[in-house]
Design a protein around this nucleic acid. Structure first.
Lengths: 332, 332
DNA sequence: TTATCTTATGCAACCGGTTGCATGTCAAGA
DNA sequence: TCTTGACATGCAACCGGTTGCATAAGATAA
């Protein structure tokens, strides 16, 4: 073994030689151990471990056509919506012994196309999250490799969708139960599918519970936007608000605190996306987004498709629910 | 060409046959066209395009050993410290036409080893961020592939370090100026390089400014940890605390608020890493982390080493500074 | 005891490129 | 005209695994 010791990286042939068997046997020890004597397998594994031998992914991929890699493309890694999703997707892939490529499209369709081209020859499947590509491009790529989407609804392409409407309905019901009659919805981007979905859910529920709704439409959702919107909220005399996302809600909390208005005693507030955990004071009541579950489900869906265990046009909808914490209370 | 038309995917041999040349010539048409007649190259390229032929990444990697891939391993994707770093690293790699594998070690050395083994045969370099591996393991891996570290100081291994000591010193000086005499350091993971560095900076500065320091050592830094630690802080009668990270600091803010202790009037608090922006109330005074710059620098360092443009034991230190916001004030 | 079936393992081709060396051609120099 | 060298291209080995088929040994049945 003194000679083997010197090598930085060993091949199957090295292990085979040391074990006194052929390459094929070593290969089988890893891929079809049941075909070998338990004793042989054991000996080979032992030697492989001593050598620190790990089968070469590339060589394996070349002969089998299976790379054991997935590509995960997101629009912005640093947007707090994504990290839990990425984490969950990564770990789910890991349990199936897949490696994942991460791509950051930077909200740019061209960049996304470029990354897909770069990944495609070394992955068995693609998972696109909040893709900016149009349906046509998506379908082109889907024809080349198994492909799944998260947060984009393209017919014929397997996809996981997060239905925030259900959670927003819960929130409205919760506010109605507490006795609120006049509420505000602090809107997100006008062209956002999620925003339309949430706003409509608010409107519908308001009608059902006989509440009035004030729609406040700042340009971009952010912490600063939330702070800036507080005077309008006060002026409109509403007793509660549903914000497009948690960041906006957090801004509203600050704005209220700065004016000495106590949440939830004087004002009730609900966020969306649950990206802050319980990390505000008081902790924010919000609509879960389940982005981690979406990530997990996306990977599983993709793996299922790759194995042909699932139809190609599966449409998986995750509903959301209200996470009641401490920013809602009956109106004064 | 009617026969070629039928194939889904073409190989170099197909193109060679159609062009009436050998495989080698086709290969050279793509990799060293200057060695061939312009006319030959042109003919081959034309046919390749007609066929929709694209060289197989895997086969190429097998023979050249160049995959054009990097591995990025972090301890927890969802920890807000990492996403900006990941994003920056990914985009930096992208400009050099590299794909990046993302691994999540989940703060577990064994998992990290496993992921490295899985990646190693298909990457040209490894970038480990806040690795939990010991120096010995790191060196073993570094011998197998070019490897760079972020946030871990192993002699002989190229590394990018974020020197939070400079920022922590600033923080201590700031607290001393305000008149604090007894402060606490709420510790992070015991085996974390950053934690040791911060703790030592606190101790040294305390000696310099003649302050007493209470070290509080919870198991894992998190929001909940911060909340849980508040009783100890109160009991120890300190007037200010420096927390290992912003999450912990945020937890402390909540814990204090729950007990009616106002920050900064009754208690001053400094975080580390600046991952929350101004999004707490009151907004958190903290030490900047520059994690995005670290990510970018790490990738560049790794690429430089791979090209042999840089010595193997480069040690790049990024210093930090204090961002004063609104959680520090003179003691009562 | 011999014929037959199992089972464990080896042989060698193959996946699709790259590359060192060999060969053949043509033009410039002697 | 013959040599020499530059240059374009081909041959075949190689990267490190996988896998269909062959073989030999042991187990079982006749």
């Amino acid at each position: 073994m003194s000679e083997a010791d010197k090598k930085l990286t060993h091949t199957m042939a090295d292990v085979a030689k040391a074990a006194g068997v052929s390459k094929s046997t070593v290969s089988r020890a890893f891929t079809q151990p049941y075909r070998l004597t338990a004793e042989t397998v054991e000996r080979i594994i032992k030697i492989a471990e001593d050598f620190g031998y790990v089968p070469n992914h590339t060589a394996r991929a070349l002969s089998t056509g299976r790379h054991g890699n997935l590509a995960l493309l997101v629009s912005d890694v640093a947007n707090p919506f994504f990290p839990p999703l990425i984490r969950a997707a990564q770990m789910e892939a890991d349990t199936a012994d897949f490696c994942v490529f991460l791509g950051n499209s930077d909200e740019d369709a061209r960049q996304e196309d470029k990354l897909i081209d770069r990944f495609i020859s070394q992955v068995e499947g693609l998972l696109l999250v909040s893709s900016r590509l149009n349906a046509e491009r998506i379908q082109v790529h889907a024809r080349r490799r198994p492909l799944a989407l998260i947060n984009l609804d393209v017919p014929g392409v397997p996809r996981v969708l997060i239905d925030s409407a259900t959670g927003v309905r819960d929130a409205m019901s919760h506010l109605a139960d507490l006795g609120h009659k006049r509420i505000a919805y602090v809107s997100g981007p006008q062209n956002s599918w999620a925003n339309r979905q949430r706003r409509n859910a608010v409107r519908l529920a308001a009608r059902k519970y006989d509440m009035t709704v004030e729609i406040i439409s700042p340009a971009i959702p952010s912490y600063d936007t939330g702070r800036a919107v507080v005077p309008q909220l006060i002026e409109s005399k509403v007793t509660a608000a549903v914000a497009f996302d948690d960041l906006t809600a957090q801004g509203i909390m600050t704005g209220m605190a700065e004016r000495g208005i106590e949440i939830p005693r004087h004002f009730s507030l609900v966020g969306c996306d649950d990206v802050l955990g319980a990390a505000t004071y008081p902790s924010l009541t919000t609509v879960s987004n389940r982005s981690d579950e979406a990530g997990r489900a996306g990977v599983r869906l993709l793996l299922d498709i790759m194995d042909g265990r699932m139809a190609g046009d599966t449409r998986l909808v995750l509903d959301t629910h209200l996470v009641v914490r401490h920013t809602t209370a009956p109106p004064l």
